[in-house]
Design a protein around this nucleic acid. Structure first.
Length: 404
DNA sequence: TCTGGGGTCCTAGGACCC
DNA sequence: TCTGGGGTCCTAGGACCC
């Protein structure tokens, strides 16, 4: 999808159309640009840029808050359209998908015709601009769709892959970022054609396993960790996390632990939604100087219980934080996810099951009556009301049992 | 100009096991 | 008295993507 977040905002407020628009928050807020309209891009504004920088570059830009629910809604609409063309659809992100069109020629015609139908169908169903790349691999399709933007279609027929890729900058290959680009430049490699001309062994020597994958990509193949496997399988998440950058750095323990409790509840809730249990809890810490640390602990069993996640994260925080130092960001991540609770003795297992059911009931109450309607007895002194403005209600004392 | 939040994959070292 | 080879799990950090 082209400038997806901006385009969706334009649907809700047509007066934004054609103007420089930045999605991500106010111009003075801590944060970065999630999406910029093409009018804003003319001023050098792009995603991942600090909001304040964007404001300097383009003072007349309109800054709007992001609305994830709206984007999810339109993403689902697009997904429905894609499903009409082939069952083998893989959403690669909220605004990007791969379709395996193998064997659909009799239904949809040759690649370019099928792409046009799809392009129009998406536009009709959502009112949103989109770009389509078509080719013999996911890598090709992805690179083509980038070249097709905005609102275009690019198809590279079989056999033309290498010639199409050769003149492109190495940075155009998905997976080649700033660091790899610099590394390649130092080796005298600037274009994809330079890469393709090299011996795979040479690349492997300088870049390890990644070099081998690059050699394949430079020839238009789906190689390396990305892009392997069939299109269409919805993979289970490997980690679930929540993090928050404070609007002002803080060393206040109550505020930090309240934030941690809030994030633990968010993570626990999403684990339950996915029906997943986590064995590893990770704490993420960022100080004022932007130095960032992670500390993890793997439990003897798996959990999806808010309090257990919270207590583990809190221990990690208490043990590892630099005393007195102001903290910019805290995060809670869970990994080692499995669909079952796993190793527990019978008694503990039964307790976990009951706790899990109680929490799911709480989740339903929150759905119905709002986030503040129920809370776990997390024993908080502080309140967490950063940015989200959903302050936790006063928690009962530690001895209180969760209500039925 | 100070740098979000949600992810995936890779690397590398150490513990531990056979 | 010096010191293998393979494998898995865990931890920490980093590149990269949207």
């Amino acid at each position: 999808m082209d400038a997806f977040f901006v385009s969706v905002e334009e649907l809700y407020d047509p007066s934004l159309r054609g103007k420089p628009v930045v999605v991500g928050g106010s111009a003075t807020q801590r944060g970065v640009v999630s999406a910029a309209s093409y009018a804003a891009r003319k001023f050098g504004v792009h995603s991942a840029m600090p909001l304040r920088t964007a404001h300097q570059l383009c003072p007349q830009a309109i800054f709007v808050e992001g609305h994830p629910d709206r984007y999810r809604k339109y993403s689902n609409l697009v997904r429905e359209v894609l499903g009409r063309f082939t069952p083998q659809v893989e959403m690669a992100s909220i605004d990007e998908a791969y379709l395996d069109m193998t064997g659909t020629e009799r239904l949809h015609g040759p690649p370019l015709l099928a792409a046009h139908k799809l392009h129009n169908a998406i536009r009709e169903a959502t009112g949103l601009n989109n770009s389509i790349g078509a080719g013999t691999s996911r890598l090709l399709a992805k690179v083509c769709s980038d070249q097709a933007k905005p609102h275009g279609i690019v198809w590279i027929p079989p056999g033309a892959e290498a010639a199409f890729l050769a003149p492109l900058a190495v940075r155009k290959i998905p997976g080649v970022g700033k660091v790899t680009e610099q590394k390649l430049h130092r080796l005298g490699i600037r274009q994809v054609g330079d890469l393709a001309a090299l011996d795979a062994k040479f690349l492997a020597e300088h870049l390890g396993e990644w070099g081998l994958a690059l050699a394949g990509k430079s020839r238009g193949l789906d190689a390396g960790g990305w892009f392997v496997g069939e299109i269409g399988a919805e993979p289970e998440p490997k980690s679930i996390s929540h993090e928050h950058t404070f609007s002002v750095d803080t060393a206040d323990s109550d505020a930090l632990e309240a934030a941690l409790a809030h994030m633990s509840e968010k993570v626990g809730r999403r684990l339950r939604e996915h029906g997943l249990w986590a064995r590893t809890i990770q704490l993420k810490l960022r100080y004022s100087d932007f130095s960032t640390f992670t500390r993890a602990l793997t439990l003897g069993h798996a959990t999806q219980i808010d309090t257990e996640i919270y207590q583990t994260a809190r221990e990690l925080l208490r043990k590892n934080r630099r005393a007195g130092a102001a903290i910019r960001l805290l995060g809670v991540q869970t990994s080692g996810l499995a669909p079952e609770a796993g190793q527990l003795d019978l008694l503990e297992g039964a307790q976990q099951e009951r706790m899990g059911r109680a929490l799911s009931a709480m989740d339903k109450l929150r759905d119905k009556y709002g986030e503040g309607s129920v809370s776990l007895a997390l024993g908080l002194q502080g309140r967490f009301k950063e940015r989200t403005h959903e302050a936790l209600p006063n928690a009962p004392d530690k001895t209180a049992k969760p209500k039925k």
